[in-house]
Amino acid sequence: MAEETLKVPTMAELTAAGESPEILFWVGCAGSFDDRAKKITRAFVSILNKLDVKFAVLGTEESCTGDPAKRAGNEFLFQVQAMTNIQVLNGYNIKKIVTTCPHCFNTLKNEYPELGGNYDVIHHTQFLQELINQGKLKFKGGAFKGKKITFHDPCYLGRGNNEYEAPRELLEKLDADLAEMKHCRAKGLCCGAGGAQMFKEAEKGNKEVNIERTEEALEVNPDIIATGCPFCNTMMTDGVKNFNKEGSVKVFDLAELVMEAQDV
């Protein structure tokens, strides 16, 4: 992927210039710090830049939504994080938030309102879908022609918030063969990272969850495993490596695939 300079305005900069963005891009901790997830962040911003979407990030004013603390049972830490973030977001009068992380998406959308944070929150796959519907986002024909792609449903996008279509509609635009796994959509199997499992060793068992899920993905012989969550991405990438398939099977976020296929 070509090196490019990204335009990433912060809310502080826009506010100083007396402007306000259409959307706030909530990057999330993985998207900010994880080397693999940063590529997803950059891909998404690259799409936004090419389409001249007026967005901003919080930059150093962004802090963890509190999702992993909440799922792990530390409600206190979660609510402190939430209240802190809500003060910042309300201070900037944020109305619409898009995020590349289903965990941030779920927390901001469902758990912040009761604490005083009311925003229109969407996942980046939904936002990209909106851009297609508005006729802004267009695709070069056949970018992924002949490639077999399987989609791994992130739990907090799918079962958690009933969004199964947006990612699949995006994949259809790529001209790829969409192959569904044995367990998909509402029956999709977790990658193993949720509920704060990402940050700890698994309990004693006979297998890792990501290996089980990767097996299901490899059963359909995909060229690409697509997902819409930085944590799923890590788990599936590790799973593919475990089967020594990293040469033939790639794990990509939908933002990365869309960036590749985008017609500019």
Binding site: V8, T10, V27, C29, S32, F33, D34, V57, G59, T60, E62, S63, C64, P68, Q81, M198, F199
Partner: peptide, 12 residues
Amino acid sequence: GAPWQFSMADRL
């Protein structure tokens, strides 16, 4: 402000 040990100043 992140589940890992990174500085908030490096967020961007």
